[in-house]
Design a protein around this nucleic acid. Sequence first.
DNA 1: TCAATCAGTTTCAATTTAAAACCAGATTGA
DNA 2: TCAATCTGGTTTTAAATTGAAACTGATTGA
Lengths: 148, 148
Amino acid sequence: MSRRKPANDGPCPVARSVDVIGDRWSLLIVRDAFDGTNRFGDFQRNLGVARNILSDRLRQLVEAGILETRPASDGTAYKEYVLTERGESLFPVVVALRQWGERHLFARGERHSRLVDRKTGEPIPFMAPKAGNGDALMPGEAEVRKLT
Amino acid sequence: MSRRKPANDGPCPVARSVDVIGDRWSLLIVRDAFDGTNRFGDFQRNLGVARNILSDRLRQLVEAGILETRPASDGTAYKEYVLTERGESLFPVVVALRQWGERHLFARGERHSRLVDRKTGEPIPFMAPKAGNGDALMPGEAEVRKLT
DNA sequence: TCAATCAGTTTCAATTTAAAACCAGATTGA
DNA sequence: TCAATCTGGTTTTAAATTGAAACTGATTGA
């Protein structure tokens, strides 16, 4: 069941990232993990994903160093899945997807969940790439240099 | 061939985004489009994707309003695929994936392509979510409020 | 002790993907 | 001009992936 890929070794970081997390379920598992979900059964119920697929994706995410398992914090003999440092660093990816979705995938007036600062309750400001001088960077103003 | 999904109508923007672009090829097509690729054959050769799959994904991206077709700019009777405004607004998503990949998916010293400011040649600074006051926002400091 | 829960694994059918062959219209070159 | 080639697909078929459900075995709670 678990995918054995030739392991993308190309020079494009986007391609490598997509290779690791560019999968419908993997990304949603990571999102739920940011939200505090960490038990197999909770992921399964939240996502409605088939158990075998969930099992496979959790294994891949652990192998990729994005999640790790540890003994369940409720003292039972079960284990739980938590984001590693590497997994936590996917935060900008999830936030970018969230912000794009909020802007483009909801009708005006349609309700959606919102990401807020836990401390102040304020919504998180829009995140976008900036040039070195701090100005907003439009897509056309950036370019990919091969193999720097 | 083209996928007919029940169209995700849940409240989570991340889930809706993933539903639209959370696919290995779709994301890479968008990346290439940012890079200036716009012809069917060029996408096909760059990505090495099967023609039927590419055909399907391009159709989905056009339906989703991320790409649009227009007469080829070289004056031939062919058409080309270009990012719409909605498509261009995926820039932060692609940048986030790129930056995560650069940091975590290359061995130290291993070369990779780099995103630079076309004007200055400087690499694009790291992009991360900020709190309302401008401070960096750690994942634990944010929380999802259901249905605001 | 015993039923229910948890975390998977197995099985098998249905869907999706990939590779290759095929095709029509547009373009090019002799 | 008209044959060869190129472009942008579609079709076909096999292989891989997914999903639903049944099954398993350990763990828990009463």
